[in-house]
């Protein structure tokens, strides 16, 4: 009987294509389950949707900037908050009911598990941030002049920020609040150094250096390139910095979750 089991398994994995494809399928299964289960949790709605839109409205109402120019700011804020809010909702809740252990015992790498979780954040961020693009183009005369820049903006930002959320979710809390709190200590200051409210060209040089280091700066700039208004650092630097952060956040999230397994 045991022999049979083993033989069955060989034929399954043999006929069911390669190891890499299997990791992808499992990551996708994790992402879709997270989407169905957690997208409508209060903490996801609040920090992922309500928060960036409210913030945007409270800072833009009464300022005499044309709305078309403000659309990139809104896109950047929704990408930032929505993408980074899924990990901090999903992982602590799964830790609380111990379902997170199921991923640790699944026959896939930790990287695939975390990439599945990251993907749930990416899709959330992209899905919500497409709304301001559509609204801008349909009602406020925004024009997509550089599709490449806009795609790079969405792809790299959602990846980097979703991975940021997953990285913070390695903090061993059992409620979303325990992760959202420290994460907000990082997210909110970043808003103010990323050229959202003040153009980077108007800042003193040392502040420009600081804003170069903020990933959010490059999201805003790429969104501006995409919709036809210029940026300060240029798209090459934008893409390089965002790509770098995405890689660092993914790497660190895996490291931190491995550290947790040592402590667990």
């Amino acid at each position: 009987m045991i022999k049979n089991n083993v033989e069955d398994k060989v034929t399954i994995s043999g006929s069911h294509s390669s190891r890499f494809m299997r990791e992808i399928r499992v990551a996708w299964a994790i992402a879709t389950k997270d989407m169905l289960t957690y997208y409508t949790k209060p903490a996801a709605l609040m920090f992922g949707i309500l928060f960036p839109f409210t913030l945007f409205l409270s800072f833009s109402i009464g300022r005499d900037i044309p709305l078309a120019q403000q659309i990139p700011m809104l896109i950047a804020q929704t990408l930032f908050f929505a993408s980074s809010s899924i990990g901090p909702v999903v992982i602590p809740m799964e830790r609380a009911n111990q379902t997170f252990d199921r991923f640790l015992t699944a026959p896939v790498t930790l990287l695939s598990v975390l990439m599945g979780k990251t993907l749930a954040g990416i899709i959330y961020g992209v899905g919500i941030s497409i709304i301001p693009v559509i609204v801008g183009v349909s009602f406020f005369g925004s024009q997509i002049v550089n599709v490449g820049a806009l795609i790079a903006c969405f792809a790299l930002s959602s990846l980097a920020f979703s991975a940021l959320g997953i990285m913070f979710a390695s903090i061993p809390g059992q409620t979303p609040g325990q992760v959202m709190m420290p994460l907000n200590f990082v997210r909110i200051p970043l808003l103010f150094i990323s050229g959202i409210f003040t153009p980077i060209g108007d800042l003193p040089t040392w502040m420009q250096v600081v804003s170069l280091l903020s990933p959010l700066t490059h999201t805003v700039e790429l969104a501006r390139y995409g919709l036809g208004t210029g940026g300060f650092f240029g798209p090459i630097i934008n893409i390089a910095v965002l790509g770098g952060y995405a890689a660092v956040f993914v790497f660190m999230s895996v490291r931190f979750h491995i550290l947790n397994q040592r402590k667990e």
Partner: peptide, 27 residues
């Protein structure tokens, strides 16, 4: 593995709990 706490997905149906587990093992 059956851990000390029944770690099932309370938002999912009995059927979906089993099917999702199957997906984790790539059946």
């Amino acid at each position: 593995i059956v851990p000390d706490v029944s770690n099932i997905y309370s938002e999912l149906s009995a059927w979906d709990n089993l099917v999702f587990t199957g997906k984790l093992y790539d059946l």
